[in-house]
Write a protein that binds this DNA or RNA. Sequence first.
DNA 1: CGCTACGTTGAGTGGCATCAAGCGCGGTGG
DNA 2: CCACCGCGCTTGATGCCACTCAACGTAGCG
Lengths: 247, 247
Amino acid sequence: MDNPLVRKLQRFARLSAGDKQALNEAARLNVRRIGPREDIIREGESPDQVNLILSGWACRYKQLEDGRRQIIAFFLPGDLCDTHVFVMREMDHSIGTLSAVTVAEIGRDTLTAITEQHPRVTQALWWEMLVATAVQREWTVNIGQRTATERLGHLFCELFLRMRAVDLTDGTSCELPITQVDLADALGLSNVHVNRVLQELRANGLVTLRGRLLTIPDLPALKAASLFNPNYLHLDHIGRHLDANEE
Amino acid sequence: MDNPLVRKLQRFARLSAGDKQALNEAARLNVRRIGPREDIIREGESPDQVNLILSGWACRYKQLEDGRRQIIAFFLPGDLCDTHVFVMREMDHSIGTLSAVTVAEIGRDTLTAITEQHPRVTQALWWEMLVATAVQREWTVNIGQRTATERLGHLFCELFLRMRAVDLTDGTSCELPITQVDLADALGLSNVHVNRVLQELRANGLVTLRGRLLTIPDLPALKAASLFNPNYLHLDHIGRHLDANEE
DNA sequence: CGCTACGTTGAGTGGCATCAAGCGCGGTGG
DNA sequence: CCACCGCGCTTGATGCCACTCAACGTAGCG
């Protein structure tokens, strides 16, 4: 069984069996289980490996001196936490789990070896990284311009599509193993207001959320209500220059 | 005279004379002058070169269907606009000028040639790109968590330090060739409120802003008032692994 | 069976938006 | 040279969206 990173990447690059094998093996070497609400890496540290989420959700976050917390990004299965870690002196933010999580630690040398021997993987990892930064840009737009209702709906659309990209949706549903406080910290809203907006979305039949299961019965409707345009996820990519250059 | 990109990069990597020459020459090939408030690249396009700002300010922005505009990033002299352009199918946002601007277009082949022959430049460009994404993350925090006053002060701190990194400050002052509307669109505020917050900062002696000149008489004070921590700009970097690996 | 975490609800407040009008200045054309 | 115009800045009045504070319900868990 391919790990979720491979599942995601092969939607966008034509990975060979060898490519996939290399990635799968690298992700089996150092697997850790971590409980919910624990830090994986703290601001100021200088880790020497990247973390690949295999199951569960984590997040990037920053905390201001007075305690305010902003969640900067959600990490879903198949996401690489900190590709940049080999260049920067030290982390300018922290990474922590939201739910219980299993991560594969991939060392610097392992990753270098893979990219040197598998150019398609290199290309795919570039794509993965650039999509992550595109998501970051969209979050800026989301928090800066959209109303609370649009914001939450937009986030749900994004999370659902990202979960679908790693085959973790079931029809119109997917898991959402995080709290309303987490949603609030990601959206720059208070938890109280997230709760109210959530009820509004429910009342309008746009989402249902029971337990930790998110259901979007009518995705186009939610997209429309949230001014959601999926282009920033670049889901339609099959190696633009890759195909032109090779074969 | 080195171009502003070289000035910026050599603070963080030990560029050889040849490294600098290659970058300077590449930036002299196709120089364009563009007036204020024009688009350089529009959402949906697939350009085949990167744009290096030589003078003036530009921005990344997205516009929602109903007209709301979010400025996602400011481009100052020395900034590369769209490093990712070679991997993605098409732009998910637009790039436009704010003031009058001169840009150097650097073609895909030119850039590839440089990075293949100049590993230090490759490393430095990595750093440049990763700092840009770190800035993007900080903007998420800024808009999501900080009050309007902190937000504006924080932005001023960032812009001043970035201008200083390309030697474009004069003591405690630097140019700020943009309007209050631009600031508002970058911060997720209304222009009216930006105006009022600006007056507050002025009244507190934290900034003066006359014409297009920004002055920060007491940078530590403004930092403190804005909860500004410069670590995300990674200004203290001198090639972490670079130094370890070579020489 | 109490504890804790999460979700929900109400009341009151305030930060920031919106609308609207006026000001100052540089550019332009008569 | 001056009237005019447009853009950016400023100010006031008003209102709403979302925050804060506070309490209570509920479910999982030791």
